[in-house]
Design a binder for these strands. Structure first.
Length: 579
RNA sequence: CGGGAUGUAGCGCAGUUUGGUAGCGCGUCUGGUUCGGGACCAGAAGGUCGCAGGUUCAAAUCCUGUCAUCCCGACCA
């Protein structure tokens, strides 16, 4: 492809709409343009990357036994009413009506459609397992779309659904997908980590997320410094850590009341009363489906709302209104504690291990000290409620946890019977009995993966595409295309590369060399072949890898084969990646 | 949805306080000189100042409404 013919409007300045790295570079390099908030057009370069990612995903889904289908974006309300999600999904669903006032939505996901389809067409255990997938646009009306492609309202997703006869079958399908996902992210040449995840609203038991590692990631993950354990912070299991014995004066004896005028926060009490945060507790009030509950964690810990929500089994969980709390408990935020409360109390595992607790009195400006769990108060339940922190013991070995950030690009779930029961989707087993399908679902955000790849692979000059997903493998830059010997040499190499099946650009624009180099760096083409006058006299050209700073002089007749070698090595399909 | 901000040429911005013929840089077009990391000279095109009302002799500027976009938060695939 000649650069003069290629539609890639690059920008010299960062558009004001973007402030995350991937968004800025994708806009500047002419890969995408915004159409409206959270909705993007893919320009030729951007769409080529999308197609590269899509093709790798497709190959691995097929290899794992998946069959590709294409389901509708427009979905009737009835199906969602059947599954019960029409009302649960809420504002995030794009809804519309047709001319007859019938209700529809734009598909945010496809469990309802696929389950209905499979129920109608699959009747026997002989037809199972069945793995069906598609790659298409999804629609979610995010409260706040942001970060360009990272959190869009219209985005491209691969979603596969597995149907099995029983739970053992599901394990097999799940394992196939886990392996396929590992192969995919390795083939994409992204640095990633598979982590244990919360299965969230979709429900079901086991769940793993695939995180592309990047400082700018929205998700926080913990991993063990000794073993393979890694988990989303939302999910990470926290072993209780006992506090070393508290100061003598606060550990023993009866509970006492101390005046604490104006002291409202853990930090206030630590500073003015000399009570360290780990000898205090935080008592947080939540409204869980309208019911007031209290959650108690050690003063130096963070409450994990996801764990609390899962423990309560509620749909809606948010911080309670202060006025309501005052009415029920007799004090405002900052003076509350678990002693003598008339609301259910959920305590973290660490709370009973504390030798002496300081907490609010449920009376403004007073706190208790020397409180003991079991003597002065008890909880409705004691469970793991806090968020994991650096240095926590690993739940699986003697190691300790570390943290890093990642971008969630894939998520696999074991759904079990959730949808097959809701939609009453059944098959006949060997004994002629009707049974519900056991399902799994497996997603990869294709467009988000493109953004994540940029987030992970860029420098101050632009994008550095991993070879397997680069829009073009190589770019040929004649330093001065008006000099016929340079142009002829460039064209010769161009043709050689094309004949080897390399996707190659040739910068035939009437621009100065600096402009061509800047643009080549900006759009992130992995290999650049520069045809310059000095080297050309010795029948040599320069080969530069985008991810390295030095250039290499290569014989002009050898450069095509050399480039082909680098590319085929990067595109090698892994034989065995069972990780 | 709460809080904050911004809409002026393709992109980045100034001008708004104090109303008086719409500006700068980059990009684009023409001609010329250049040609190894975003060249230079000369000329040119391009904006009903987000939209709708209002005040005024006069509105980018003041007032009211509205739409859009972005950031923080809450929410969440």
């Amino acid at each position: 492809m000649r650069c003069s013919q290629l539609f890639y409007p690059t920008l010299r300045e960062v558009p004001s709409e973007a402030d995350v790295i991937s968004h800025q570079w994708l806009l500047r390099a002419g890969f995408i343009r915004r159409t409206t908030s959270g909705v993007y057009t893919y320009l030729p370069l951007g769409y080529r990357v999308i197609k590269k990612i899509t093709e790798i995903v497709r190959q691995e889904m097929d290899r794992a036994g998946g069959q590709e289908v294409m389901m509708p974006i427009v979905q009737p309300a009835e199906l969602w009413q059947q599954s019960g999600r029409w009302d649960v999904y809420g504002e995030e669903m794009f809804r519309l009506r047709d001319r007859h006032q019938r209700a529809y939505c734009l598909g945010p996901t496809h469990e309802e459609i696929i389950t209905t389809l499979v129920d109608a067409e699959v009747h026997s255990y002989r037809d199972l397992p069945l793995l069906l997938y598609q790659i298409q646009n999804k629609y979610r009306d995010e409260i706040r779309p942001r970060f360009g492609l990272m959190r869009a309202r219209e985005f491209i997703m691969k979603d596969l659904y597995s149907f099995d006869v029983d739970h053992e079958g599901l394990q097999v399908s799940y394992e196939k997908m886990r392996q396929a996902y590992n192969r995919i992210f390795q083939r994409l040449m992204l640095s990633y980590r598979m982590v244990e995840a919360d299965s969230g609203a979709i429900g079901g038991s086991a769940s793993h997320e695939f995180m592309v590692l990047a400082e700018t990631g929205e998700s926080e993950i913990v991993y063990c410094d000794r073993c393979e354990y890694a988990a989303n912070v939302e999910k990470a299991v926290c072993s209780p850590v006992a506090v070393e014995k508290a100061a003598e004066s606060r550990a023993d004896g009866e509970m006492i009341t101390i005046p604490t005028p104006g002291l409202r926060t853990i930090a206030d009490l630590a500073e003015h009363m000399g009570i360290p945060a780990h000898e205090q507790v935080k008592t947080l009030f939540y409204s869980a489906d309208g019911k007031l509950v209290a959650a108690v964690v050690r003063g130096d810990r963070e409450l994990n709302e996801i764990k609390l929500k899962n423990a309560l089994g509620c749909n809606q969980l948010f911080m309670a209104d202060e006025e309501l709390v005052r009415e029920r408990c007799g004090a405002g935020f900052g003076s509350l504690g678990p002693v003598g409360l008339n609301v259910p109390v959920y305590a973290d595992l660490e709370v009973p291990l504390m030798p002496g607790i300081s907490c609010g009195c449920n009376r403004d400006d007073y706190h208790y000290s020397q409180v003991k769990y079991g003597r002065d108060f008890t909880a409705t339940a004691v469970l793991d409620l806090r968020s994991a922190e650096v240095g926590d013991p690993c739940p699986h070995c003697e190691g300790h946890l570390l943290k890093m950030r990642g971008i969630e690009v894939g998520h696999i779930f074991q759904l079990g019977l959730k949808y097959s029961e809701a939609m009453n989707a059944t098959y006949l087993d060997k004994d002629g009995r009707q049974k519900h399908f056991v399902m799994g679902c497996y997603g990869i955000g294709i467009s988000r993966t493109m953004a994540a790849a940029v987030e992970q692979n860029h420098d101050q000059d632009g994008i550095i595409w991993p070879i397997p997903i680069a829009p073009y493998h190589a770019i040929i830059v004649p330093v001065n295309a008006n000099k016929s010997e340079q142009w002829e040499a460039a064209w010769k190499v161009y043709k050689q590369l094309e004949n080897l099946g390399i996707e190659v650009l040739i910068d035939d624009r009437d621009q100065r060399a600096g402009v061509k180099f800047k643009d080549a760096d900006l759009i992130g083409i992995p290999l650049r072949i520069t045809i310059g006058p000095r080297a050309l006299q010795e029948n040599r050209v320069e080969l530069k890898k985008r991810w390295e700073s030095e250039t290499e002089l290569v014989d002009i007749d050898r450069v095509a084969l050399k480039v082909a070698g680098i590319i085929s090595k990067a595109n090698q399909i892994p034989i065995d990646l069972d990780k």
